[in-house]
Design a protein around this nucleic acid. Structure first.
Length: 300
DNA sequence: TTAGGGTTACAG
DNA sequence: CTGTAACCCTAA
């Protein structure tokens, strides 16, 4: 890996990423002005931010110069008119609504924000569980198997999912997010105000309304070559496969995070895995979204 | 101001 | 020498 002039520190990179999440890719000046990041980025210009973001995107998504060359060579795919699909992170901000994927509609929320948790890294498996309960709309609450079933055929959880679900349910109950009544679970009053008939609670499409706080803690580099490889392969899948893979990735990330939370207080390896899984899940969802976007465009 | 092409500095 | 990351130039 190359070498620098004024090399970017991990803190700066983290600030940039957080800034992009908060203001969107492309709003470099805005990010720079944000007091949250200006302290760290005051040595950088908006152009620097842009360039750095480009560099990170390139190394994270593409492969290297080899893949780049190959991509350039095989511009002639089956059906013409299909330009090379730029899966740049700058396309993140404006997402086309993903309604229909080729075959079946897959109910996947792209960015399930946390609802009641106030901790920094509350597992999103929590939200998955809450979502299941809400969607099931059982007046008396839902039991464990119902929740498990919902999640299982909505996503594609790994084998040991049930075990973790049990643990999670217990934890959520004891922490007051869920109320357990006769083996059935309901949303705790303060957690979700919607009990009756709000069917679309968890889908903040488009813009994030609650910008995550910037944590300069242990921000992981978050990209492994392995992830890139998987991602690259995903682009050649069918829509169904990609959707399934993405959904599965999301759940796996939840599991990994849950494991990291439960199995330890600060297990470093588990935490790293969780971060990596989550990063992959996000990237996977992004790829899926872009796929759908281009598909819709071609269709129109 | 930004996106993108181009250039330079440095590590391997 | 080659690849990469930081930096520069410029059209829109």
């Amino acid at each position: 890996m190359g070498a620098p002039k004024q090399k970017w520190t991990p803190e700066e990179e983290a600030a940039l990423k957080a800034g992009v999440v908060k203001h969107g890719a492309g709003k470099w000046r805005t990010i720079l002005k944000d007091p949250e990041f200006s302290r760290i980025l005051h040595l950088r210009s908006n152009v620097d931010l842009k360039d750095k973001w480009r560099n990170m995107s390139v190394t994270a998504s593409g492969w290297g110069s080899r893949e780049k060359a190959r991509i350039a060579l095989k511009k002639s795919k089956r059906i013409a008119k299909n330009d090379d699909n730029p899966m740049t992170a700058s396309a993140v901000t404006q997402n086309v609504d993903d309604e229909i994927v080729d075959g079946k509609p897959l109910a996947v929320s792209d960015e399930p924000l946390q609802i009641a948790g106030s901790k920094k890294s509350v597992s999103r498996l929590d939200n998955l569980i809450l979502e299941a309960i809400v969607k099931l709309k059982e007046p008396a609450g839902s039991n464990k198997t119902a929740i498990a079933t919902y999640i299982e055929d909505q996503y594609w959880p790994p084998p040991d999912f049930k075990r973790l679900l049990s643990g999670k349910l217990k934890f959520l109950t004891s922490s007051g997010k869920l109320i357990k009544v006769k083996r059935k679970y309901r949303i705790a009053p303060s957690t979700a105000s919607s009990e009756g008939r709000n069917s679309e609670v968890f889908l903040p499409e488009g813009k994030l309304r609650e910008p995550p706080k910037f944590e300069s803690e242990k921000v992981k580099p978050l990209t492994k070559p392995q992830v890139d490889a998987e991602l690259a392969r995903m682009r050649n899948m069918t829509a169904q496969e990609a959707a399934a893979a993405a959904a599965r990735a999301v759940v796996e990330a939840e599991i990994a995070i849950a494991e990291a939370e439960e199995a330890s207080k600060e297990a470093e390896a588990a935490e790293a895995d969780a971060e990596a899984a989550q990063a992959f899940a996000e990237a996977a969802m992004l790829t899926l979204k872009n796929r759908n976007a281009t598909k819709l465009m071609l269709r129109a």
